[in-house]
Design a protein around this nucleic acid. Structure first.
Length: 257
DNA sequence: AGAAATGTTCGGCA
DNA sequence: GTGCCGAACATTTC
């Protein structure tokens, strides 16, 4: 679930509901998700409030009225919930507000992490997070892409190259740009790289407009057809599945060169 | 029952 | 150093 568009939706949830009200208590229900110790998380946040909800790639960054920033990464499965009352299932951390509401970090597979930092730039550097896929301008993208080697799909998923794109959206970007995922990025002409850049932006923006819900994606997207036996929305041909480093990916062998 | 699933990291190899 | 693979992590779902 959580690639850039998903995290952007979580960011908006946090921005709408979870800013500018004091955090009364922090509950950590699973030590595993606390990359910073529970004590550190609690001490850094209790009594303060979140002032902003930012995003860089798949990281959700929540600066506080104190000296620190809470950083969330959702791993393979996770999301945010803001509610009053019962704690949702799989809530691994909960931030309780003085108004009786809570922000829950939901993470069924425990692959997500919570960090505390006092310097976002230093944190991103340490985590090797490259420029955000939606913040990157065309000329900066071109400069980076012209030095990059390997498969297009791998490049898009390389968080140090561009951050925010994962397995599902890299498939969609390749499909919309009409490149085979395994095409070498260094074989692309300048014009083709520009095409890739625009596909990347279109796909991510469109996904956000549709709240990152796969079933709600436009009819020309391949995302709702990531299944064996499905057909290409462009040519009607059979969608093919292949593997790369043990991960499945989907494409149309007819439409993608 | 077994495999695959949206992410990251690490060891090993070319 | 780069790129690629498989395995590992934990749990759910098909």
């Amino acid at each position: 679930m959580p690639e850039l568009p998903d995290v952007e939706i979580f960011r908006r949830t946090a921005e709408t509901h979870a800013l500018n009200q004091a955090i009364e208590a922090v509950e950590i229900d699973d030590q595993k998700v606390a990359a910073s110790s529970p004590q550190n998380l609690s001490e850094s946040l209790r009594g303060y409030w979140f002032t902003e909800a930012k995003r860089r790639g798949k990281y959700l960054l929540m600066p506080t009225s104190g000296e620190t920033v809470l950083v969330m990464h959702f791993g393979m499965t996770g999301w945010l919930e803001y509610n009053q009352g019962d704690k949702p299932g799989y809530a691994k951390a909960t931030f309780n507000y003085t108004n009786g509401y809570s922000l829950h970090f939901i993470n069924p597979r425990k692959l997500g992490r919570l960090y505390i930092t006092d310097d976002i730039e230093a944190f991103c550097q340490y985590m090797k997070a490259g420029p955000d896929a939606l913040a990157l301008k065309e000329d900066a993208f071109m400069e980076r892409a012209q030095k990059k080697k390997g498969m297009i799909k791998s490049a898009l998923m390389d968080q140090s190259f561009i951050s925010g794109i994962g397995n599902i959206y890299s498939d969609e970007i390749c499909f919309q740009a009409r490149f085979h995922p395994k095409t070498k990025i260094n074989d692309l002409s300048e014009i083709q790289l520009v095409r890739l850049f625009h596909a990347m932006n279109d796909v991510l923006q469109t996904a956000i407009e549709h709240h990152a819900i796969p079933e709600k994606m436009p009819a020309h997207f391949i995302i709702p057809r990531r299944k064996e036996g499905e057909y290409c929305p462009r040519c009607g041909g059979a969608i093919k599945k292949d593997k790369r480093s043990g991960r499945g990916f989907y494409f149309c062998p007819h439409c993608q060169e």
